[in-house]
Design a protein around this nucleic acid. Structure first.
Length: 252
DNA sequence: AAGTTCGGCAACCGCCTTGGT
DNA sequence: CACCAAGGCGGTTGCCGAACT
């Protein structure tokens, strides 16, 4: 299932993570946060690269990660998003709370690609069977326009959201979640506009001098931004392009 | 029962972007 | 502006268990 552990010439361990390594990484991040991925393994007592640690955390150890089978709804959403976005796995992950980009990517390649292809073939077959060449226009144009508007909605939303590359971080669900979920509880929920500081909040909250230790059990998750955008209403209403981010999320 | 093939998925790799100096 | 370091992303690899012969 996974790569066998081994060491490269620099003494960096590669391959499958042991339970002990997981525990070390988890407890270190829970206590101090991931203030610097490159240095983190050294401080955490791990013989891993920073990248490897980051990946392990983002894809496996994050407290909000959801493991197990994808639901039908999640799969449908991935297919829909893939139609609109292509291979933007990290953006898709933002629409699927608790799922990592890697997980979504794997799911796509192993299951959904085939399913989407089948669906597409069926659709084309139906189209050819039912529509005369001179009738193509209206219905098809509506669908194409809807797609375009949907795409514009997403682009608008992303441009305004903390996921935007114009804000502090890349379009990375991981950086967004890491800072967000782990630092916010109760009244201390940052406004989306302040999200650029979330990474700092996260770090500050777990500096060694801070007694406010984080543990997954005392997290008080806010209603996720993604839960809201996942609403069918949003996804299925291409005309709803004027979603006001601040209106919706300003009350956090 | 043994050998082979296939599917799933964790992890790695290389490139790109961003932010700091 | 150029350079560098760090983080992040998407493509790919490789291992292992399941299914098949």
């Amino acid at each position: 299932m996974m790569k066998a552990p081994c060491f490269n010439k620099n003494g960096v361990k590669k391959g499958a993570w042991s339970e002990d390594e997981d525990n070390k990484l988890r407890s270190y991040i829970e206590r101090y946060g991931h203030w610097n991925w490159r240095l983190l393994p050294k401080f955490a007592g791990l013989y891993r690269s920073g990248k490897s640690c980051r990946l392990r955390w983002v894809n496996y150890l994050r407290p909000d990660i959801k493991r197990g089978n994808f639901t039908k709804e999640e799969e449908d959403l991935i297919i829909e998003l893939h139609k609109k976005l292509g291979n933007k796995w990290s953006v898709m992950a933002a629409y699927l709370p608790g799922r990592s980009d890697n997980e979504i990517k794997n799911r796509w390649h192993t299951h959904l690609k085939k399913r989407a292809k089948k669906d597409q073939d069926m659709l084309e077959y139906e189209h050819v069977r039912t529509v005369q060449p001179d009738q193509v226009s209206t219905k098809e144009k509506i669908v194409q326009n809807s797609d375009l508007e949907f795409l514009q909605d997403i682009e608008t939303l992303l441009a305004e959201s903390p996921l935007s590359s114009s804000s502090s971080a890349n379009l990375s669900s991981s950086s967004w979640f890491d800072g967000f979920d782990s630092t916010c509880s109760g009244d201390d929920i940052p406004q989306p506009a302040n999200y650029k500081h979330a990474e700092k909040l996260w770090t500050d909250a777990f500096l060694p001098s801070n007694d406010n230790l984080f543990s997954p059990t005392n997290l008080d998750y806010p209603v996720s931004f993604h839960d809201i955008i996942m609403l069918d209403e949003f996804l299925c209403s291409p005309t709803n392009s004027s979603i006001d981010y601040n209106d919706q999320f300003g009350n956090w």
